[in-house]
Amino acid sequence: MRVVTPGQAARHTGSKYLGVLVAAKMARNLNELRRNELLEDPTLGNPDEVREKLTTIAIEQVRDGKAAYHLIHRRRPDEL
Protein backbone atom coordinates (compact mmCIF):
# COMPACT_ATOMS: atom_id res chain seq x y z
CA MET A 1 0.00 0.00 0.00
CA ARG A 2 1.36 3.36 -0.99
CA VAL A 3 1.07 6.25 1.40
CA VAL A 4 0.66 9.81 0.17
CA THR A 5 0.63 12.49 2.83
CA PRO A 6 -1.24 15.79 2.60
CA GLY A 7 2.14 17.51 2.82
CA GLN A 8 3.19 15.89 -0.44
CA ALA A 9 0.01 17.11 -2.11
CA ALA A 10 0.72 20.63 -0.81
CA ARG A 11 3.79 20.94 -3.04
CA HIS A 12 1.63 21.68 -6.07
CA THR A 13 -1.36 23.29 -4.41
CA GLY A 14 0.27 25.55 -1.84
CA SER A 15 -1.49 24.12 1.22
CA LYS A 16 -2.41 20.73 2.64
CA TYR A 17 -6.05 21.72 2.93
CA LEU A 18 -6.32 22.72 -0.73
CA GLY A 19 -4.45 19.59 -1.84
CA VAL A 20 -6.88 17.34 0.00
CA LEU A 21 -9.90 19.27 -1.34
CA VAL A 22 -8.66 19.01 -4.93
CA ALA A 23 -8.00 15.27 -4.50
CA ALA A 24 -11.46 14.72 -2.98
CA LYS A 25 -13.16 16.51 -5.87
CA MET A 26 -11.12 14.49 -8.38
CA ALA A 27 -12.02 11.24 -6.61
CA ARG A 28 -15.73 12.14 -6.81
CA ASN A 29 -15.37 12.82 -10.54
CA LEU A 30 -13.47 9.56 -11.10
CA ASN A 31 -16.15 7.68 -9.18
CA GLU A 32 -18.88 9.18 -11.37
CA LEU A 33 -16.96 8.26 -14.54
CA ARG A 34 -16.45 4.70 -13.34
CA ARG A 35 -20.12 4.38 -12.39
CA ASN A 36 -21.18 5.56 -15.86
CA GLU A 37 -18.84 3.06 -17.51
CA LEU A 38 -20.34 0.20 -15.49
CA LEU A 39 -23.88 1.29 -16.37
CA GLU A 40 -23.02 1.25 -20.07
CA ASP A 41 -21.18 -2.09 -19.98
CA PRO A 42 -21.68 -4.21 -16.82
CA THR A 43 -19.04 -6.72 -17.96
CA LEU A 44 -16.28 -4.15 -17.21
CA GLY A 45 -16.56 -4.79 -13.48
CA ASN A 46 -14.42 -7.88 -12.98
CA PRO A 47 -14.61 -8.74 -9.24
CA ASP A 48 -11.29 -10.64 -9.35
CA GLU A 49 -9.40 -7.61 -10.64
CA VAL A 50 -7.57 -5.59 -7.99
CA ARG A 51 -8.09 -1.90 -8.64
CA GLU A 52 -6.41 1.06 -7.09
CA LYS A 53 -8.67 3.11 -4.85
CA LEU A 54 -9.96 6.26 -6.49
CA THR A 55 -8.84 8.43 -3.60
CA THR A 56 -5.31 7.06 -3.94
CA ILE A 57 -5.28 7.75 -7.68
CA ALA A 58 -6.57 11.28 -7.12
CA ILE A 59 -4.12 12.27 -4.40
CA GLU A 60 -1.20 10.78 -6.36
CA GLN A 61 -2.18 12.90 -9.36
CA VAL A 62 -2.30 15.98 -7.14
CA ARG A 63 1.08 15.04 -5.64
CA ASP A 64 2.63 14.59 -9.09
CA GLY A 65 1.20 17.88 -10.37
CA LYS A 66 -0.99 16.17 -12.99
CA ALA A 67 -4.24 17.54 -11.55
CA ALA A 68 -5.46 20.65 -13.29
CA TYR A 69 -7.61 22.86 -11.11
CA HIS A 70 -8.56 26.50 -10.71
CA LEU A 71 -10.00 28.41 -7.81
CA ILE A 72 -13.20 30.36 -8.07
CA HIS A 73 -13.34 33.21 -5.60
CA ARG A 74 -16.84 33.78 -4.37
CA ARG A 75 -17.99 37.10 -3.10
CA ARG A 76 -19.82 37.17 0.18
CA PRO A 77 -23.11 38.97 0.25
CA ASP A 78 -22.91 42.27 2.10
CA GLU A 79 -25.94 41.50 4.19
CA LEU A 80 -27.87 38.32 4.74
Rank of each mutant, 00 (worst) to 15 (best):
M1P: 00
R2F: 00
R2P: 02
R2V: 04
R2Q: 04
V3I: 06
V3M: 01
V3Y: 06
V4K: 03
T5Q: 10
T5S: 12
P6F: 04
P6N: 06
P6Q: 08
G7E: 07
A9M: 09
A9Y: 05
A10W: 00
A10Q: 04
A10C: 08
A10S: 12
R11P: 00
R11A: 11
T13F: 04
T13C: 09
G14P: 03
G14V: 07
G14H: 05
S15F: 09
K16V: 11
K16H: 10
K16T: 13
Y17W: 13
L18V: 12
G19V: 05
V20Y: 06
V20C: 04
L21R: 15
L21F: 05
L21I: 10
L21E: 13
L21S: 13
L21Q: 14
V22I: 09
V22Y: 05
A24N: 13
R28H: 08
N29W: 07
N31C: 11
N31T: 14
N31D: 11
E32Q: 15
R34M: 08
R34G: 05
N36M: 13
L38R: 14
L39T: 05
L39C: 00
E40Y: 03
E40T: 06
D41R: 10
P42V: 01
P42L: 06
P42Q: 08
T43F: 03
L44D: 02
P47Q: 11
P47R: 12
P47E: 09
D48Q: 12
E49I: 13
E49C: 12
V50D: 09
V50T: 12
R51D: 00
R51V: 12
L54D: 04
T55I: 12
T55W: 09
I57H: 03
I57N: 05
I57G: 04
A58V: 04
A58G: 03
A58H: 05
I59S: 10
E60F: 00
E60V: 10
E60Q: 14
Q61I: 03
Q61W: 04
V62Y: 02
V62E: 03
D64M: 10
D64P: 01
G65C: 05
G65E: 07
G65I: 03
K66R: 09
K66Q: 07
A67H: 01
A67K: 02
A67V: 01
A68W: 04
A68H: 10
A68M: 11
Y69F: 11
Y69K: 04
Y69D: 01
Y69C: 04
H70A: 14
H70F: 12
H70S: 13
H70K: 15
L71S: 06
L71Y: 00
L71K: 10
I72C: 08
I72V: 15
R75P: 00
R76I: 03
P77N: 15
P77G: 14
D78W: 09
D78R: 15
E79N: 14
E79L: 14
L80G: 13
L80I: 13
